[in-house]
């Protein structure tokens, strides 16, 4: 208790909540999930090294015919898409685009670095949502 460090709780708590803060948490979370997925992916694809039967067995296990696998595959699309879209936004900002220039801090403060790219943030998230809606249709409504 002495330190009062927030730990994981600090990813969503503390300070005034702005949307970028939640995207930060999601970006870290999806990053970890992608690393986990990558290891599973390599294991599954690597089964080909043990012969055709192993490969076909693995494909039967994780093929899209299985509704549970299909759900997780869709989740993977969500995770990849969010990480990619948000990553593009972060790279733009980190290379100095979209974030504005230093200004004299005259009240009310401009807070340019987060206010200026915010429309872009919403546009990207809406585009991602539209894409995910199409993907959901593709995954669940159409026959495999």
């Amino acid at each position: 208790m002495k330190d009062r460090r927030l730990g994981i709780r600090g990813w969503i708590y503390g300070g005034k909540h702005n949307p970028e803060r939640f995207l930060y948490t999601l970006h870290r979370l999806t990053g970890v999930l992608l690393v986990l997925y990558l290891s599973v992916h390599i294991l599954v694809v690597g089964s080909r090294a043990f012969g055709q039967e192993a490969w076909e067995g693995a494909m039967r296990l994780v093929g899209l015919g299985n509704p549970v696998v299909r759900f997780f595959e869709y989740l993977l699309v969500v995770v990849v898409l969010f990480h990619a879209v948000n990553g593009a936004r972060l790279i733009l900002g980190e290379l100095g685009f979209t974030i504005g220039r230093p200004r004299r801090p005259i009240y009310p403060y401009p807070k340019e670095s987060i206010r200026k790219p915010r429309p872009l943030l919403w546009i990207l998230m809406i585009l991602a949502a539209v894409y995910l809606a199409f993907a959901a249709y593709n995954f669940f409504a159409l026959p495999a």
């Binding site: 300070g15 005034k16 702005n18 900002g93």
Partner: peptide, 13 residues
């Protein structure tokens, strides 16, 4: 990762 919390909370802009 550009959470922007520092900018949001800064009392001196």
């Amino acid at each position: 990762h550009f959470a922007g919390a520092c900018t949001e909370v800064c009392p001196k802009g």
